[in-house]
Simulated assay, not measured.
Amino acid sequence: MTSSAEYAMPLDMLDDFLAFTLAGKKPELARQGACANGVRWSWLDDGILLLAPSAVQEASAPALRSVLVSAGVHGDETAPIELLNRLARDIADGTARLNCRLLIVLGNIDAMRDACRHLDDDLNRLFCGRHTQVPQSREAPRAIALERAAQAFFDGAPNTPGARWHIDMHTAIRASAFEQFALLPVTGAPVSRAMFEWLGKARISAVLLHTTRGNTYSQFTAQACGALACTLELGKVRPFGQNDLTRFAGADEAVRHLLAGTNDAVNSTANAALPRAFTVVDQITKQSDAFELLVAPDVANFTPFARGTLLARDGAYCYTVRHDEERIVFPNARVKPGLRAGLLVIDTTAQTLAELV
């Protein structure tokens, strides 16, 4: 029989999981228990919280969807962190329904405390084992912890289509022609119609399709865990408390419907519109400190450039637009040498939507 101490809900933790985590707290009496509404919780590590339906529903765990929702892989991307914090509270008090296994992950906690993107290295470039290349980085242990937590979580999920999901929520550094967009990792499998339809319900305007494997969190969960994974970009970087979360109501609502198992209940207007699709055709890589990115410092994501436009140079290296139109995404000349300083994409909407499976 479970003791009453084990099932005492830690109100300070679940009512404000973000504040609890940033304060460096740990559950005092037990690391697992149940809320008044029957939702079971397990505190697994700093910023990592497992939630599941009541014991009766959990008896059929193999039939349950398993969803990992993460935010704060970059510590200064606060809007998704606040959305996820509110979601944890609403599930705990019964305001939001939970009919699946849920792993909530707050990513780079030390960077959140310092209100910065990262301490030593971009955490979202250290997955798929790349953390082994920077063992002295303060981000490396966190990448290892997040990989292990994801693998353990998805090890308890079936391999049936649509049973494993990962929604990794971010915000962009700069303005964008599409304020809210998504990135899908490459797995070798056809692009998922279920994911595209869910993104449409989340009112995501555009989807960027990677063509080479990267070292992002969503690449890891897609590749190593078999999850339908995406990275969401939900606006611009702002300090905690300065976000208008109503701007991201579409994504928030879609996540909640995914967790409740009521995906089809999302408003019909969002259901009708699939996002535009853009496919990566090249990458600008910073090779040395002599690198020059020849675009305006405040150029927006998805800004188009015509064939023949010189976008970057670095000694003998240069990047010139080769297609009739290419759009630049994530331009950033301040990255370390060897890292991506921009992606170039072309519109492939018609072809992509025709090939969804």
Rank of each mutant, 00 (worst) to 15 (best):
L119R: 08
A172I: 05
S60N: 15
V67K: 01
K336T: 05
S288K: 12
Q287D: 15
A354R: 14
I328D: 03
F302N: 03
L87I: 10
L232P: 02
F278M: 10
P141K: 09
F240L: 13
M195P: 01
R148K: 14
C225Q: 04
A224V: 09
A163I: 05
T309N: 02
S137R: 01
T303W: 02
W41Y: 15
L184Q: 09
I81G: 06
P185F: 11
E253G: 11
L83H: 05
D122E: 09
T187A: 06
F17M: 09
A249G: 09
S176V: 02
Y319T: 13
A251S: 14
V329H: 01
R313K: 15
L232V: 03
T309D: 01
P161L: 07
Q180V: 11
R256G: 06
T21K: 01
V69W: 05
P80G: 10
R40C: 04
T160W: 11
K201Q: 13
G162W: 11
F181Y: 13
D324Q: 05
A34G: 02
L293Q: 11
F291H: 00
R327I: 04
I173P: 00
V191A: 03
K286F: 01
N37T: 07
A316W: 03
T211V: 14
A290R: 11
D324C: 01
M1L: 14
V39R: 02
A306Y: 09
P27C: 11
Q351H: 06
R65P: 10
V191M: 07
A249I: 08
L83N: 03
P337R: 08
A316F: 05
A354T: 13
L18F: 00
D90V: 00
T212Y: 07
Y317N: 08
L123I: 07
K336V: 07
Q287R: 15
G47S: 08
T348S: 14
S3I: 07
A312D: 13
L14E: 01
G188E: 04
R276Y: 00
K25E: 13
A177C: 12
R174F: 02
P331G: 14
F17C: 07
V280C: 10
A71N: 01
L344H: 02
A61W: 08
V345I: 03
F178W: 12
T78G: 05
F20W: 13
A5E: 10
E292V: 03
